[in-house]
């Protein structure tokens, strides 16, 4: 469990993270999404105590991170792939990290096996490909059997097979009741991996919602009817937008097709077309993050509460 409250980080005049609050719960994969420079890495660095917050509070499993008896056991993390001395072998790299917290050698060999690096464990890490470096970083994150697993863009540099592998790994960890927090700027990948999303833009929280809602809320429906005007009157309601495209055509957002069809039937209105356009996840994501740039801060936080 990670609890972030009113977190702010300024670098000089740049506000990288701006009054950000969210929780990452155990038992599911939470995706941390946002465009480049949104403040994802900075937030993760603050969770680990690497950057000092300008304001705000973070607890990991109920305690401040510096107060943990075995920090590596509370949070296993990967922030930078290939953060390894190029001349040291993968196994020695992990042995040294393991030693700090008393993780036995047997466990080092176990995580090497989990990430599939056993055969190259004694080779210089400098010779590793980007994907192998990423796997070594993940091995380091799993080393001390952590309650929370936090990975910054773990899919970077992995081949398609590797991406499927990490997806299954993360979901498996969540099933074991662990807290899994993974950043990405690829919504399509996150939609397959995560159950819950925390979306940020320009350091602010844009949305904190289950993946299913992100797809649900973005549906737009095209309706054609000879009595389009009468139909519009039946559909219009709070939170529903009805746009008249031509005399016999409407664009409706905020209502599922089934409901539109039912209301038309109840009103005795004949329909010629009823077409849902499920906006792609990418589009939903772009719309959301695009909004954050345009909306004033107060409106952004209203949206947040609504979501």
């Amino acid at each position: 469990m990670i609890v972030v409250e009113h977190l702010t980080k300024r670098f000089g005049r740049v506000t990288a993270v701006d009054d950000l609050s969210f929780q990452v719960r155990p038992g599911l994969v939470t995706g941390f999404l946002g465009p480049n420079g949104a403040g994802k890495s900075t937030t993760m660095r603050m969770i680990l105590g690497l950057d000092r917050p300008t304001a705000g509070r973070i607890t990991v499993n109920g305690r401040r991170f510096v107060d943990q008896a075995a920090p590596l056991h509370e949070i296993g993390s990967l922030l930078e792939a290939r953060a390894v001395h190029p001349g040291r072998s993968a196994r020695n790299h992990l042995l040294a990290l393991a030693a700090t917290t008393g993780v036995p050698t047997r466990r080092v060999d176990e995580v090497l096996d989990i990430v599939g690096l056993t055969s190259v464990a004694r080779q210089r890490a400098g010779a590793f490909s980007l994907g192998m470096g990423q796997r070594l970083g993940i091995a380091g994150a799993l080393l001390a059997d952590p309650e929370v697993v936090m990975l910054d863009e773990p899919a970077n540099g992995l081949d398609p097979e590797g991406i499927v592998w990490i997806r299954e790994l993360l979901q498996g960890l969540a099933r074991e009741g662990r807290t899994v927090f993974v950043s990405s700027h690829l919504i399509s990948e996150m939609a397959l991996t995560a159950e819950h999303l925390v979306i940020v833009g320009r350091g602010r929280l844009i949305a904190d919602l289950p993946v299913s809602e992100l797809t649900g809320t973005s549906d737009r429906v095209t309706v054609r009817s000879p009595r389009a005007g009468d139909l519009a009157a039946l559909l219009i309601d709070r939170g529903i937008t009805v746009t008249s495209v031509s005399t016999d055509q409407l664009e409706v957002t905020g209502l599922p097709v089934e409901e539109i069809g039912r209301r038309a039937f109840d009103g005795g209105i004949m329909l010629h077309t009823l077409t849902p356009h499920s906006i792609s996840l990418e589009q939903a994501f772009i719309d959301l993050t695009h909004d954050s740039v345009q909306y004033a801060p107060t409106e952004v936080s209203t949206r947040t509460v609504a979501a």
Binding site: L50, S77, L79, V84, P86, L97
Partner: peptide
């Protein structure tokens, strides 16, 4: 400096936050 250069120091700071 090797550890700052490679970024490894940050993995160690995460293990030893003090």
């Amino acid at each position: 400096t090797n550890e700052y250069g490679t970024g490894m120091i940050r993995a160690y700071f995460a293990a030893v936050p003090t």
